[in-house]
Structures are given as C-alpha cells and as structure tokens.
Design a protein around this nucleic acid. Structure first.
Lengths: 331, 331
DNA sequence: TTGAAAGCGATACCAC
DNA sequence: GTGGTATCGCTTTCAA
C-alpha cells in the first residue's frame, strides 16, 4: 500500500500537521523533528499525492500546452523550450496537438480545465479565443504563441517582418511573379506573412496584385505543398518564378514536385521556406528559410505564464532570413 | 466562482449523488432527471474537478511519457501516436524529455508518480529499470519503448534486424570497412544494431573485427555525428568507406562534414542513417535509412498500457531498409 | 514548535 | 431511481 502523511506521521511519532509542515514550510520545523520525518518518508517510500494536494490547495502543478502539431519540429522545439522552463519550477507539461481542429481543441481544453492546470500555452486557431475566456473565468491564465490579442499575454514572432524580408529578397533577385503558399487562412501567421509580402512589393514600387499569387492550404504537410504547387503552377497563366511557403515542410513538397518535373532550382523555380528546421541546410537544394528562435520562444512563453505577466505583455522576437541555394544563394 | 456538483444539484433540484450518477453512470438515471441535471451543468458552466475525482477514485486521467528527446522527430512521432490513442479514451498526455540524464529522469518520474498517472510509456535509459519497479509498487504500469525487459511490457523495433539489413546491404555494395556510429552505449538499440551489424558481417563470411569500427557517441545530434566522423576518419589507419549512423540526425552531421571536405557520397563515403525521418529523401544526397513505423509504435504502446496487457507482452515491429543515393541507390 | 480537526469536491455505498 | 453521507490524502487554521 502506498504510504500517506498519516503513516509517515505515525512512524516519525509526530502529527500529520507536522509532516505537512516539513513538506511545505520546512523552516518552521525543528531540525531534529524534520530529520526524523524525512527519514520516515524515505523508509516508507512516501510519495506525495498531488490530487489531494491540489484539491486542498486549489492549484495543480501541471501546465498545459496546446500546439498545432506535435509532429512538426517547429512546435516540438517550442514544447522543449516550455518544458525546460517548467522544469525549473518542478512543474509538469501536459501537451496536446490541436491539428487546428476546433473539436479536438475543445476537448483538450476541457480536459485541461478539469485537471486544473496552472496555466496554458497555446498556439491559437480561429475559434480559440472565446474558449480562453472561459478558462480566464476559472482563473487559468493563458499565453498565446505566435498570435496577438488584447486579452492575453503573448509571445510571438514578427511575421510581417518575416514575410517582408523574404519577398524583398526575392524581388532583389529579380522575381516579379511570386506565389505565396500560406497555411490555413485563419492562422494569424499565415495572414501576417502575406501582409509582409505585399508590403515588400509595394515598397519596391510594384503592383502587388500582379506580383503575388496566393493560396491558403488546408494543412501544412509536404503533400499539401506539392498539391498547391501543381495547382498554382499549372493553373496560373502567369507562372510564378518563386514560391514562398508557410513552412519548410510545405517547401519540401514544392521541391519534391520540382525535382519530379526536372525543374531547376532556383533558375526556373526559387523556393523559400519558413522556420529553418535543422535539415533545411542539408537538402539537395539547400533551402532559403526564415529562422525563428523557437526554443527561446517556448521558454519565454512559459516564463511569462509563471511570472504572472499581465495580459498586456506581448513579447516579439525578430525572425532572420537565411539565404541558401534554393533562392539563388548569398549575394 | 467555479461551480461544483453541489451547485449543480441545488440548481437541478436533485442530490449530489444523482449528479454524480449523471456523470458516471448516466444509464442509471431517469431521462427527465438527467436532462435537468445536464441543463444545470450547462447553465453553470460546470467543470469537473479532476483532483477531487482522482483523489476519491484513486486514478488519474493522465498518462505519462518520458522520451529521450522532445526535439527529435522520431520521438515526437511516437508522442503523437501515444496521444492519438489516449484521445480515444479522453486521457491526457504528460510528457517530458529525459535527455538520458538520470537525474532529470528521476525528477520527472517523481513528479509523475505524485500526479498518480495511470500509466507510463518510457524510452528507458540504463538506470531506468529500477525506478520502474518503484512505480510498479504503486500500481503504475509501464510500457517500455524500444527496449525489452522481463518485468515490463514493451513495444519496440527489431533493432538487430535493422542493423543486419543495413550492413548486409553495405557488404553487397562492396564495402569492407564500415564505421558504426552508435548512440550512447547504454541504449539498448545502440547495442542491438551493432549486434545485427556484426551478424551480417559474419554471415558474409568476413571478420567482424576487421570490417567494423564502432564508436559510442555522447549524444545523437548532428554535431556529435560530425565530430565522430572526424574522429574515425582521421584517426583510423584503415579508413571506412561507409558510415552507419544511429539516426538520421547523426547521419546529417556526417554528410555535412563530407560535403565540407568535398568527399563524394557515396563513391568515397557511403552514409546510412536510421529512422527515415521525412526529410531523409530530400537531402542533397538522399539518405539511405531504416524506416520505423513510429506513429504505430507509439499508438501500440499506449494501447498496450490501456488494455492492461501483461508484462510478458512484447510487441515487435520490423524495420525496413530504404535504399537511396547515399549508399549507392537502389540496385 | 507541534497537534487536533475542519474541509477541499467528487464518488460510491447504503438506505429509502 | 434517488438521497444522504463517509471518505479519499493533504493543507491549513487555531490552540496548546
């Protein structure tokens, strides 16, 4: 049988109150008593029951994270950053992928709420924000990842800047017809990067309607990218000479199709990804991409959460364009 | 304030017992009553308190997973498989990376034990197994990933077969000096794959001491791979013509160094990875690798856990060699 | 500094 | 089918 405070108390010849004190306010206990209690705990292999503790204390030691997709390295790097910050406070991480599926997200948040998580880090989808208000009502704070909102603290990237850097670069390399393969439209980062792209075109004194052709993809897999490439390249009269993809995985799909068709990169088609995943530099055609300090972002998000930062804190990291062969290589 | 069963009961004009019945044995409640209670729950935005429930029921709705490294796609694919299985039962996943650090692992398991997790899926390190016995004593079942043991159920790959397939392939391609870059020695899969490699050499009627030169790496990053390549290639008098790496990331490091040195792959150095991560086929030199059904493995592990399979169940998936350019391409 | 006892919120048993 | 109530293990006053 699992030993509880009672057993420990009996064994140490003290009351449960004292055992609890040893656990929670060790300084308030006489050294000798404390040592006796600690010995008893060791002998009995005492493990605190978090449920009981939480029930009484009203607070759990778990933090929840809802990420878009646990099989995408970008998000798992975030998870890792979050985890590392939590470890400092001996907190545990509950994770779930939302897959941008509102129902799945709903179920997960429900479960998290039941668990009484201490806080939530989430990459929100279109329908998320209302749900967060319900959590707020229960006193569970949230930090948004890669998305801003008046009502919640957030840590994110300057996606407008990212999109702008990419397209400015492509224009400098002479591209005048650029495809933007965004993720699902409801993703803020999708829209922001497009906004940045448009901005860069305008700044170059060009007409954005003529230069940019964009698509919202249903998902962000390599297959989605490949299909979108086919759709755009075969469907548009004015063929793009460059593809700017929402992430490196999608870009992988574009590269794959180019290779199948024997299109040279970058001379016939330039490709740019986003996230700069570790293998981007090792591809057959090394991929120009945008680097984001993912681990730091996750860490910062957890830190914001734990420090009880106000909902008006919005930390923004600046992305950095990494130019490789897929867009013509460094100047 | 957060509404509890009491509030719901009052509002619905029933007793708390009935509310609990609606929650846990809906069939045992009259339809009319049930609807009334459900309405009350909705109106009050009732959220079950998992702590209280667990305390009483003695069982949590969380399952723990301790994975080697949350930033490695192989492990996150596992996580994803686990998560998908848990979702079926409305369970949540607590994850942590052990980084093969015994202390970190210890702390995490402690935390998980306190949480009263319903079960554990773990990629064990050298020191893990004792710790699991403590969990066993608390009635928390574990399933080992990628590792076998008499005392626990497991789901894994046949790593001996994987190693054997790789080296048989390399020998067929004429390689007679093969470097094996294993992960840390205490990892069972490291040792098993080497065993398989040796077996293949012996089966070919060759002397394994002459053919195979092996190293245990401290970690499994691209940098570790790169460093090990330098160590072996520059350090050994008989230069290997092929490198068999513990995973694709390590192989990436080897490829990187080859490229820096201008060594042609595969004519001067053949490279084989393991795991067949999604980008393996898209590398500058597409990487020969060993495919493992990661998602299925994770799913199966969670399934084993939830089905309460005995400790004598050892599910083994067979890996599949995928031959690409880095080892000379398909025959 | 230590002990006794109330109570966190849901469950499950036993009456009715 | 429904209601009353002891109980899970721990924390936290309050008194001694």
């Amino acid at each position: 049988m699992r030993a509880g405070v009672k057993d420990v108390a009996k064994r140490a010849g003290v009351s449960v109150g004292t055992v609890s004190n040893v656990l929670n306010r060790p300084d308030a206990v006489a050294d000798a008593t404390r040592e006796r209690v600690e010995a008893a705990m060791r002998e009995l292999d005492f493990v605190r029951n978090a449920s009981a503790r939480q029930l009484r204390a009203g607070q759990s030691t778990a933090v929840g994270a809802v990420l878009l997709d646990l099989s995408n390295p970008f998000y798992t790097a975030l998870a890792r950053g979050i985890e590392d910050r939590l470890a400092l406070d001996n907190l545990t991480l509950m994770v779930a992928s939302s897959d941008q599926d509102p129902e799945r997200e709903e179920r997960v948040l429900q479960l998290f709420a039941e668990q009484g998580i201490r806080g939530l880090v989430i990459t929100p989808t279109k329908t998320t924000k209302k749900r967060l208000e319900r959590l707020d009502a229960f006193g569970i704070p949230s930090v948004l990842l890669d998305s801003q909102s008046k009502r919640h603290a957030s840590v994110g990237m300057d996606n407008v800047s990212g999109g702008r850097q990419v397209v400015r670069h492509l224009i400098e390399r002479g591209h005048r017809r650029i495809a933007y393969l965004g993720g699902p439209e409801h993703l803020e980062q999708s829209r922001d990067r497009l906004a940045g792209a448009v901005q860069a075109v305008v700044e170059a004194g060009l007409n954005s309607d003529e230069v940019i052709v964009s698509r919202w993809l249903p998902g962000m897999s390599a297959d989605d990218g490949q299909r979108a490439f086919i759709d755009v390249y075969d469907g548009e009269a004015a063929k793009p000479t460059a593809f700017f993809c929402i992430n490196d995985i999608v870009a992988l799909g574009v590269q794959r199709e180019c290779r199948l068709r024997g299109y040279d990169m970058p001379s016939r088609v330039a490709v740019v990804g986003y996230d700069d995943v570790p293998f981007a530099s090792e591809l057959m055609t090394p991929l120009t991409s945008v680097r984001q300090p993912t681990h730091e972002i996750g860490y910062a998000a957890a830190d914001l959460l734990l420090s009880g930062a106000g909902r008006d804190v919005h930390q923004v990291f600046r992305p950095e364009l990494v130019i490789r062969a897929s867009s013509g290589g460094p100047a």
